[in-house]
Write a protein that binds this DNA or RNA. Structure first.
Lengths: 205, 205, 205, 205
DNA sequence: CAGTAACCGAGACGGTACGTCGAGTCTTACA
DNA sequence: TGTAAGACTCGACGTACCGTCTCGGTTACTG
């Protein structure tokens, strides 16, 4: 009656020197700095390696290509900050605050450069796009959707409202302004919230 | 590449050649093909020059850098198709049709690759972003806005409605799906139109 | 692209910028310095390119590989000095002087390093060996042979003497000492000349 | 004899696992194969380690550097075959046979590649050159010299003949042909022997 | 006979150099 | 004199090795 044999060693104990998590994190940090400073297509793996104090081969040992490195950085939160959606009880106000926070975050050169680099990487590479969707956008999407559903339960949002479409419009609006580098005034953000909650259709009297 | 007609008059003119517009158009065509096939950051001016039958110096005579070439290509319509906004009298339907046409256009690999390359170029380079906004987005923006104002005059849209915000949401929604390569079903497009016209707010009975 | 141009452009007048002879010479000079300092297998094309003020691609435009670069340097005399064989009327003395000059030349670190690097390149690569034989060894061989034949005409060397074998022995002796870095004394050089002229066989009384 | 405790470790046996002679021999065999196949400067310790079924650190535990490995391989006879000098009573014939055997051995691709790799290593590295001289060349030198002195005792070689110079010429001639990859005919070997025994000087009648 | 110290295969590490390719500039021959 | 062709410098790419440093694990001497 032997218990579990060497089965547990099957996965964790490879031969050879263990891979250095410290090196991996140094690479991601250096990548974030380079991306913020120079953008995606000016990214140089030579510079990243030098800045991280790492051999170039180590980068390729972890990530097969430049795009994968950027993708990994995004999904581990090393590159992009996470924005919470508050719940004050007033769903319109919480959505507006999220919009304001998003725009003020991405208005800074560093965060703006990072997000634009991520968008460029996403636009260039389908695999990166998938990572981005799964690990970044979907988190934001879910957070917004949860807040909206909470608002519906609070009877601030009507039953049957197209909440998914609302989320897409919110994120899309932010994305559009980030890409075109336009800064909407606070009034425009208010107008967006008005639009999404009240619509534009003429009301039958 | 074609021959200019009145070649025989060359004696009276200055020595040298006067054929330039054909080369310029060949460059733009080759750029469009390369962008659609390989994307922005894999764009090679050597390949473009070879494909256009043109010397590299000729490209630099017109465009100071790679980003400027892409920007110029976009604003002359060589890269991106222009989508009309119809006016059937029913503004909801016309907006929905524009959404459908946009998605079906960008779902094709060629047009999708082009628009994603443009987005990457835009995200990389502020000057390209400005060009893009001035010559491409603003055209679409104006066309949509004109249709919406026409709808307001027809009493299908209420006075004081945030039409600019609506336009941003529409374009942003399209942009988001293009970048993430997700294909919304037709039902989702209908939900987006419903959202933008009717809002989500609970109505006072 | 049409082909009704003058046929006379066939070989000498290619289109495009002419290849820079100055760059080629700078490459060879830098190669010589690197070889003398570090030897053949520590030779770095990056360093050569930097020292010559030349792009690495330019080196590869001229020479397909490291070995070919070294071979070309040798055959153009950029790497190895040429040693003359004097003709004072006394063939033994002239041969001895050539031996002395050869050893004193190759005893210096710079010339010794160069010749050893050339030997390493020759030993590594058959194509280099062929170049070396055709352009370097054969010149020395011919010069020595000419002097020996002149000595035979002066009745200092017997008819039917194996002059080619003598040349091989002379060059081989020099090569052996260069490779093993041993410095024969002057007496040993004299003994070599005595050997080659008088032989070792016992004489019938 | 009481104060210093661990002095007794001066015995041959150290604590810990003994070094594996089998691993050392596998390394030398793999080195020989790699050298014959690819030459000295393409030698890869990674490949040697893999071929020998040995960790790279084991190689460095035995040999401090690539050059030392090659040197050690040469002096243990793992890399180069040893050529005997026969003694049939006829010294001219024995020398000629040694020359023939040397050339026929080094004419084979494997032995030729090995000897050329050794020459390259020797030319590159002074320490290797010293090893080579001490353990390889000097053995051949001594064997040839012994045979020549035996010939002198048999009155086939005159007293006072420069035997060391003869040995240098013989080895140098072989070396020269190995490096330049030229194959002398049998007649040329005969001419070399004639040269070394009879000289080239005109004889006073 | 249990400890333990040096060994072992394996392979990741920081580096250096490779040979290729692309950007943007400059030069030559031709039209 | 403008254009194609293409060589130029510069610099990044992704790969291969070097020589070193861990890993987990294996002998074989020692206490």
């Amino acid at each position: 009656m032997h218990e579990d044999g060497p089965v547990t060693t099957a996965r964790t104990a490879r031969p050879g020197r263990a891979r250095s998590e410290a090196a991996r994190l140094a690479i991601l940090d250096a990548t974030r700095d380079e991306l913020a400073e120079r953008g995606y297509d000016k990214l140089s793996l030579d510079r990243i390696a030098a800045a991280a104090g790492v051999g170039k081969a180590t980068i390729y040992r972890w990530y097969p290509a430049k795009a994968a490195l950027v993708a990994e950085g995004m999904l581990t939160g090393h590159l992009l900050p996470h924005l919470e959606v508050a719940d004050t009880g007033d769903v319109r106000r919480d959505v507006l605050d999220w919009l304001r926070a998003s725009f003020s975050t991405f208005a800074s050169p560093a965060a703006g450069g990072l997000i634009r680099a991520s968008i460029a990487a996403t636009a260039e590479d389908a695999a990166v796009a998938e990572h981005y969707e799964e690990r970044v956008t979907s988190v934001t999407r879910a957070a917004l959707l949860a807040r909206l559903e909470s608002g519906r339960r609070a009877r601030q949002i009507r039953d049957g409202a197209p909440l998914e479409a609302l989320v897409e419009s919110l994120i899309g609006t932010v994305l559009l302004h980030v890409v075109t580098r336009r800064d909407p005034g606070d009034a425009a953000l208010g107008a967006t919230v008005e639009l999404l909650f009240d619509g534009v259709a003429a009301r039958p009297a």
